[in-house]
Design a protein around this nucleic acid. Structure first.
Lengths: 342, 342
DNA sequence: ATGAAAGCGCTAACAT
DNA sequence: ATGTTAGCGCTTTCAT
């Protein structure tokens, strides 16, 4: 009779050991952990004590394998340093952890090939859901997600052809609204400062198209490399000045982010231009400093926290099995915030 | 003869199916994936083709369970919104993903009880390592990590009693260096603006102690609630002014973060105080905007990216089995950056 | 309300 | 260089 070989174990306390300690079957311990309602009070106490005494930490790897539920949700961000996504991510994390899910963060970066690897790595963990914050680089990646059958929520965008669920706002609407509103306020001379980021560019295009529809063309533009930064904003205004765009007329400078706009305000002061007297400035994002710049910055507010909460909720609904037949699409809109800068 | 019951499967392609498709044993497919060097060229190609044709995505949950290696590293941040940790996190993520590890982000927040839950959740995933960015709230949590036997690297701090490995810098040294250097530059009147954050406070205490040793006491302080913000910096300087601290003498205002310092610069301009003529300002962090403020901000640079890289490297070394007997401790230091603000 | 048996998808340990 | 066998730690399914 051959002695069975034993694999090297991790030395960690297992559910089995807890069960022996409590004098019950392993499945009972499992129930105490996952379905306490189905276990008698007395057994519950006994098992909980055994858990405490053994210092048991459940192995979710094993649990996930057995149940095909990883309780893991992957969130994909384009980059970590962009503070506009922080609120969204924070809200997602809070909502999901309250429901017993953990969040695995992936940064898609700027390289398409890196994105492929990232997706592979993410899907290998068998997440119960995926939340995209900003879209993916390639249509192939989007197709891959679609094929994976994992519930997906896209945010920070209103993709025309969503993978699955969608919670966002329209960058085109914002550009259009800016053109209309600023024209109505009496501005006739504009400039646009942006970075080469897909969503910001779409806002910019829509803004310029809106202006064109109002009969305004020849809008000076400065496009800076991503990411948007304070220093970049200063350079951009300087560049407009060197183009001669700041002489003779009062110009409304629309920026694709508050960070750029903050730099513009500072450079304006350095150039001796008064705001909003000689120059008006508009930002995007309503970041924490926007209300406190000198002068206070007019901007577009996106409720990133609400968006994150809504995205997480939508996912949780789906995971709970309440899958609506109609494809879920939520437009959270935006708010124009008018402060002293223009 | 009873028909064996079959469990509902996920419908995903399994390694087993790939093996059948390629006409090899499952373990061979596993080798192709994890140890391609041990497989003959011909077999390799055959299996890779089968993988491509079936659209196989490995299940790391199962792999981790079988091998006791999750290829997962947890990074714990105090909060997501603090940009000082971004570089560190980014560097950690890059270094670890290049080595085939994935990063699970946990945010410890400000509540100690939330931290307990977070640790439980993290340990349930059986991470191969944990990187702490900023320390934990309670000694109990630290003890828990120590007991878990998971390799831990602490960063952004030089804890006196490290859990395991350590890559950081000394907040006390910084405070001391600031006092010495600013005194040497001729400053004799100071103020301190901080937020109620443990590490910043330690820098502040050391700074004040350093000044005291030089015979300077009675340093006006403003402590604002965390997190540090631009608006907070403005309010803080205003508060110093209302205390009468800005009249008659040229004062060096040392801030616990660049964000606060930026607000101070703006408020100084709004109050009509010239910098560095009537007021000098020092920040902390050398954030992207620091070199571009008006005037450019003097500050303390911490190389967050290097810290992240070093932390990840230390962890990878350990995971590769090159565990040095001596406890690993690395002090990356800091740099005083002197610009126009003081 | 609790338990026994089987299996989730993979890899370690030994063969060959 | 490849295969066989057992088992990682848990949960599902069915039985009592």
């Amino acid at each position: 009779m051959k002695e069975p070989r034993t694999r090297q174990s991790t030395g960690q306390v297992t559910l089995m050991q807890v069960a022996r300690h409590a004098g019950v079957a392993p499945i009972t311990v499992s129930r105490v952990l996952n379905n306490p309602g189905t276990v008698r009070e007395r057994t519950l106490l006994k098992v909980r004590q055994a858990i405490a005494e053994t210092g048991y930490v459940p192995n979710l790897l094993a649990g996930a394998l057995a149940s095909s539920r990883s309780r893991l949700v992957s969130v994909i961000l384009p980059m970590l340093t962009n503070p506009v996504f922080s609120d969204t991510f924070q809200a997602i994390t809070e909502t999901l952890s309250a429901a017993g899910y953990q969040v695995l963060l992936g940064v898609s970066g700027i390289h398409a090939e890196r994105e492929e690897q990232l997706l592979e790595a993410i899907l290998s963990r068998r997440p119960d859901g995926i939340i995209l914050t900003g879209t993916l680089h390639t249509e192939a990646s989007r197709e891959r997600l679609r094929a994976s059958n994992v519930p997906v929520v896209e945010t920070w965008d209103l993709a025309p052809d969503p993978i699955d669920m969608l919670v966002g706002f329209s960058h085109e609407d914002i550009g259009q609204a800016l053109a209309t509103r600023l024209y109505a306020k009496g501005y006739r001379h504009f400039a646009f400062i942006g970075v080469d980021d897909p969503r910001g560019s779409r806002r910019g295009q829509a803004f310029l198209a809106g202006l064109a529809a109002l009969g305004i063309s020849a809008v000076p533009q400065v496009i800076r490399p991503a990411p948007a930064s304070f220093g970049s904003g200063r350079l951009a205004l300087r560049s407009l000045q060197e183009q001669g765009a700041l002489r003779g007329v009062r110009r409304m400078v629309v920026c694709t982010s508050d960070t750029l706009a903050h730099g513009v305000l500072t450079e304006a002061a350095a150039l001796g231009l008064t705001v909003p007297g000689e120059l008006a400035v508009m930002g995007f994002g309503d970041m924490d400093f926007a209300a406190h710049t000198h002068p206070a910055l007019s901007t577009v507010r996106i409720d990133g926290a609400s968006m994150g909460r809504a995205a997480a909720q939508a996912l949780l609904e789906r995971l709970a099995g309440n899958s609506p037949e109609a494809p879920m699409r939520l437009d959270l809109g935006f708010t124009l915030i008018e402060r002293a800068s223009g």
